[in-house]
Structures are given as structure tokens and as C-alpha cells.
Nucleic acid binder design. Structure first.
Lengths: 309, 309
DNA sequence: TCAATAGTGTCTATTAGACAGTATACC
DNA sequence: GGTATACTGTCTAATAGACACTATTGA
């Protein structure tokens, strides 16, 4: 074991740890928050009634901040991580439990934001998690630090692309609007994606241009989440976290469209996900919700990627 | 603006920020480190001479720790992030500059590790960055906290897969060895990937089983990096960061093999990357290094994904 | 019968993968 | 000539994408 090895001060590991004073480095220590990007798909009006799939929207949960900074602005639900007592993932789960009624939903780490000026109080780090839930388990509650909690339609619009050629490369600026809508509230947060390519080096940076009604740098991480969802929908089964256990092909295709913004046909979608990838399987249930002819209800085939080992 | 909105204590934003005492929360604050996973491809013996592509290896830079904890063990180069003065990305660049001779290399955020027990000193968070460099710019230097810095061959071996069926799902355990070799030093770090699938919920967790000669939980993040490289090599141009500016098809194919572990043919590789994706373009240079017949040297076509906007 | 959506089949173009065959150098 | 690696072309199977066609119900 390493126990008997001495460091340059002649300390054993035990002596070193006893002498290690966690308070000593306080001026250099960070507060860490865990922020949740909770996505769902539901009707634009949030009600169950509509039988028109065109009413479906991709939505994200936001809370209205009850305190400074960015008081009254909308923000991702989240909170400080309790040092020594939980991980940021556990904090995210705790926050999810506080904001919503959930259990066993999809959750993955997304990105860590740590710009020096991102929070006016201090240099505070945010570890963000992305979560996908279906409508059964999505009652939102405002936590103690929030005035309200609401589902916002989320959409991304590229408003401008500038490309300038430089020696052995180019610089491309992509201006993106993150648009968030809940009834009469419309938030537009503007960000810029700068890709600089020179020789073999390619570097991409996301900058906040105008945060609009959205707190902190949350638009940046929403943009990252939309990218990641788009990618993962193509080669994993995450989209089925946005659907109920039993769903029609048309419903699944709508979620596919909302997350990828692709415009294929429902027939080809059926072939790809059912026949080729065998990602969904028929059940003996049907629904007449959308048409006179009953539509089969399908469910996720959890063994679809068994060949992966 | 929000300046005039009062919080529940009747404070304006300015009053709130003046009263915000960063010291007050010290017991709850984290030290944050930035750790670098620097990958390259070079000959097994680290020398330039060999003309046999089978001598090429994927390697990662490790330093030997000079202090507790994990003194004498090998670890990812990294260090504490200076609060208020730099981001973790800037800290990573600083560390890269300290450990190696680099400039303008590929660098992306990988993952944030924050298990409570991951560091014996305190609950310390690690934000890790993945970097790919080619051999021109890879002289390693040991930093102040390191006894040595070396390139280790890195390889991943799946040693066992257990799958047990549960109601409406299954649990799969995958035991993975992260093998690191530098001449007579051979480090084997054992981790376990547990995938639990029940109904629609799929959850994957990585656990350290036996860290071997590798410090902290660095095996976890090396495993994540190998996965991400493998994925990104398929649909981005990151692999060309592991190659010199001018390269032969055979060299590029070798890097493709080392990063993906796929066994296609060099002919099909040529067709895919040159003819179909147009990711590489011919130059007028040639080399006779590997064969009597001169091989054309190619370079990355930086405009290959122009249709993406 | 029609209307409306569900579902199947077919055609084409592209790509992946296997592999035969040709080319260009040095000996 | 032989040898070694570079490069081209061809065949097949799988997939993506467009879209015509059939099926099943209620009105």
C-alpha cells in the first residue's frame, strides 16, 4: 500500500490528511449548483383533450426566481449542492423531486458552466443535468425559491450565419434564438455559436448575446441540451422517455419530429424504428383516439440493442 | 430592468448583492480541480523510427503524483481551478501548457466527477477535459506536483458481462479493465458499468472496482473519454487532431482503427472518408516511408461539413 | 358509399462492406 | 522478373427516403 510512502515534507498519508485543513483554502472555494433541464412533450395548451398531433410541443420546465439575482426572471430549477452530503446528481434528483412528481425518470449529466461572471454573487459553478419525462409524471410545483413553475414551449431559431474566410480556415458565427413560450409569456434569449477553424484546429464557443427574460447563462445549456437530444434520438432510445408506455407510431413520429426537426414520413419512421432497428414492438392494445381505424399501440423493445453486448 | 424589484426581505438587487457574504457559506464550498485527458497516437516505443504502422498505439499522458493522497500513483495531469480568476477550461489550458508544449490543440469538456468519497482530503469536484494532440507538439514535462510525466499506451478490455433478467427489464454488469502500459509499468484499473433497464427507464452507472495503480477515480473518466472518441470519430473530424497535417491514407486508417477498434479495410476507409464524405483531400506531396511506391499525402478538408451551415 | 387515419409494399439512390484486380515504385 | 504497398473498381447487402397503394373503422 501507499501508506508508508512519505511526501517531500516527510509526511505519511495519514499525517498528511490529518494536517490537511479544508478551511485554509476557503477563499479559493466554489459554491456549486445543480441545475435541471426537464423536457416533456405535451399539447400546446397543456391539456389532455386535443386529438390533433400538431398541437404537440417540446416543453421545458422553468421556475420564476423569487430572489436576486435575476429576480422575477425565469430560470432552470436547481439549487446548491450540499457538500459532503450529496453529489450533483443526487442534488438534481432532489430538485426534480421538489419541483415535480417523479420517480425513475431519465437523467444524464449535460455540462458544467463556470464562467467567472456568470453569477453576480460570486464565481459559482453550475453542473447541469438533462431529464426527459412523459406526461404522466409532470405536475410542476414551485420550490421555496420560486414564485412559479411552468412548462414552456421551447424552440430554437437560427437567425443569422456569418462566415468569413481566413488564411487556412474560416470563422463562422451562428446567431441562435432560444424561444420559450407559455401562454402570454414569450422569452427570447439570444446566443452566438462561434466556430473558428484554422488548419486542423476547430474550436467552437457558445456566447450569451442577450439573455432576455431567462436568468444567468441558462440559454447556453438549453441549446446544448437540444443538440444532445437531437443526436441521441438518432441512435439511442431516449425519445421513448418522452412518450407514455404505450403509444401509436404517429405519436412516436411526432416526438421524433419535435426533437430532431426532421421531416421524413411516418411510413419511413415506422420502417426504421420497427422493422429495421426493432426498437418498438406491437402490443395487443389499440386506440381509436386519432382515427376511425384503430391504431395499434406499441411499446419500447428494451432488448433492441442486445447485439451491443 | 430588474433593479427596482424587491425580494422578500425588501432588498433591491444592489442591496442584496452588497449583503451577500461569500464567506458565510464556506463550510458548504468545494475545491474544484480541472483534469486533462491528453491523447495522442505514436509508436509503442515512443520513437519516430519505426515504419511499421502496427507499432502505433493510442496513448494518454499521465503524471506520477509527488504528494498524498495517492502518492506515487499515476494520475491525469490537472490542478485546482483559481476561483474568480479562471474557468476550468482556462485551468485545463494552463495545465496543458505546463505539462506539454502545445498550442491550439483540440480540447472539449468531458465530464464532471463529484462523488463524495472520491478524494480523501475533502469533497472535491473534478471537471475533466479531453484533448487530442499529434506528435509534433507532445513533449511532456512533469509539473511541480509530479515526479514524472509519461505517455502510456491505453487499452480497454471487457473481462465479463453478466445479464440478469428482472420483471419488465434486466440488469447488465459489464466489467472493464482500463490497461495502461509504459515500458515495464503496467497499470490495470478495474471498473464496472451497470445498466439497469426496467420498463422504459434505462440507467447506466460507472463504478470503480479496483483503481490499481491509477489515482482517484480517473479510470472512470478515461473510460468515458474512450467512448466519446469512438463515437465522435464516426461522425466528426476529431481523429485528424491525432495525425500530422499531412498524412497517408494508411496512417489515417490506423488511427481510425486504434480509436474505434473496428476492422474494416483500408480500401473502404479511403472510399468513405475521401470519396463519400470528402473529409480528406489530396496534396501534391508524397512519401516513400512505407512502400516503394510513393503514397500521396492527404490533409483534412476543413470545409467537408459545409452543407451543415 | 366516403372520410380519415393506419399500415404495407415498391422503387431508387446511397452507403457499408468484402474483395478482386491494377499501379508504381525498388530490388 | 518479384515484392511491397498504393490505389481503383466491382459486386452485394443494407439502409434511407420518396411515395403509391391497401386496410379498417365510423358515419
Amino acid at each position: 500500500m501507499t501508506k508508508e510512502i512519505m511526501n517531500e515534507l516527510g509526511q505519511t498519508e495519514k499525517e498528511f490528511l490529518n494536517a490537511y485543513n479544508t478551511e485554509k483554502y476557503n477563499a479559493t472555494k466554489f459554491s456549486v449548483t445543480s441545475d435541471c433541464l426537464i423536457f416533456t412533450v405535451e399539447n400546446a395548451d397543456g391539456k389532455e383533450e386535443s386529438i390533433d398531433l400538431d398541437d404537440k410541443r417540446l416543453k421545458i420546465a422553468l421556475i420564476q426566481r423569487a430572489n436576486h439575482p435575476h429576480i422575477d426572471k425565469w430560470a432552470l430549477p436547481g439549487g446548491f449542492v450540499n457538500k459532503g452530503r450529496e453529489t450533483s446528481l443526487e442534488a438534481a434528483k432532489r430538485e426534480l423531486g421538489e419541483e415535480t412528481e417523479i420517480s425513475g425518470i431519465y437523467l444524464e449529466q449535460l455540462y458544467t458552466l463556470d464562467d467567472i461572471e456568470r453569477d453576480q454573487r460570486d464565481h459559482i459553478i453550475s453542473v447541469s443535468y438533462m431529464s426527459l419525462v412523459d406526461k404522466i409524471e409532470k405536475e410542476l410545483r414551485a420550490g421555496s425559491d420560486a414564485k412559479k413553475a411552468e412548462w414552456f414551449e421551447v424552440e430554437r431559431k437560427v437567425t443569422q450565419i456569418n462566415k468569413s474566410i481566413i488564411e487556412n480556415g474560416f470563422i463562422r458565427e451562428k446567431f441562435i434564438d432560444i424561444v420559450l413560450i407559455k401562454e402570454d409569456i414569450k422569452i427570447i434569449s439570444k446566443i452566438k455559436e462561434v466556430t473558428a477553424v484554422k488548419n486542423r484546429a476547430r474550436r467552437t464557443k457558445l456566447e450569451l448575446v442577450n439573455r432576455g427574460g431567462l436568468a444567468f447563462d441558462h440559454a447556453i445549456v438549453i441549446n446544448l441540451a437540444l443538440d444532445r437530444i437531437k443526436n441521441k434520438v438518432e441512435y439511442t432510445d431516449i425519445m421513448f422517455n418522452l412518450l407514455p408506455e404505450y403509444f401509436t407510431i404517429a405519436e412516436a413520429y411526432k416526438v421524433y419530429q419535435l426533437t430532431t426537426n426532421k421531416n421524413d414520413t411516418v411510413q419511413n419512421f415506422r420502417k426504421k424504428f420497427k422493422n429495421v432497428r426493432k426498437m418498438i414492438i406491437e402490443t395487443d392494445k389499440t386506440t381509436k383516439k386519432y382515427s376511425p381505424r384503430p391504431a395499434k399501440l406499441y411499446k419500447l423493445n428494451i432488448h433492441w440493442d442486445d447485439h451491443e453486448g
